[in-house]
Amino acid sequence: MLESPDYIVRGYGSDNRIVYGTGAVTPTGRIAARAQDLLARPEIDYVHVRSARNNCYQCRIERG
């Protein structure tokens, strides 16, 4: 993981649905900052990191 130059980082709500408008292709080095920004929003419960090429799930980031 994290060998690609970029990934999709997207927020999800407590209903396990995408919070529309949160998905963005993000450079690998900016994933942590992007996730932190998304998790600061009260409507976002967790973040998925997915392949920017074929949308395969890579990992989930939660508040900790």
Rank of each mutant, 00 (worst) to 15 (best):
R53H: 12
D45E: 14
L38M: 10
G23L: 03
E43L: 07
E62G: 07
G13Y: 03
A40L: 10
I44N: 05
G11Y: 02
G21M: 12
I8Y: 02
V9M: 04
D6H: 08
Y12S: 09
A33I: 05
T22S: 05
R60L: 13
V9F: 02
R30W: 10
H48A: 08
A40Q: 12
R60K: 11
R50N: 13
T26R: 03
P42W: 12
C59K: 07
I61N: 05
A24Y: 01
P5C: 06
V9G: 00
N54R: 04
A33N: 02
A40H: 10
D37W: 13
R30F: 15
Y57H: 15
Q58D: 10
G13C: 06
A32F: 15
D6T: 06
Y20C: 08
T28Y: 06
A40M: 10
R17P: 05
R53K: 11
D37T: 09
Q36E: 15
I44W: 11
V9L: 05
G11W: 01
R10V: 03
Y7M: 11
R17S: 12
A52F: 00
D37C: 08
M1G: 10
S51M: 03
A40I: 06
R41F: 12
Q58G: 06
I61A: 06
H48T: 05
A52K: 01
V9W: 02
I8E: 02
T22N: 01
E3W: 04
A24G: 01
R34Y: 04
R34K: 12
E3Y: 03
S4I: 02
R63Y: 15
A33G: 02
R53N: 11
A40R: 09
A52Y: 00
G64S: 13
Y7I: 07
R17W: 13
Y7D: 03
A35I: 11
L39E: 13
T26Q: 00
V47G: 01
G21T: 07
H48I: 05
Y20K: 09
D37M: 09
T22H: 02
S14E: 13
P27N: 12
A40V: 06
H48Q: 08
T26E: 00
R17C: 10
C56N: 12
H48V: 06
S14A: 13
D6V: 05
G21I: 11
Y7L: 08
A33C: 03
C56F: 14
V49Y: 00
G13S: 09
A35V: 14
G13R: 03
A32E: 15
R34P: 00
N16W: 14
D37H: 11
V19F: 14
V19R: 10
S4N: 05
D37A: 14
V49A: 02
I31P: 01
Y20I: 10
Y20W: 15
G21L: 11
N55V: 03
A35S: 15
G13L: 04
I18K: 06
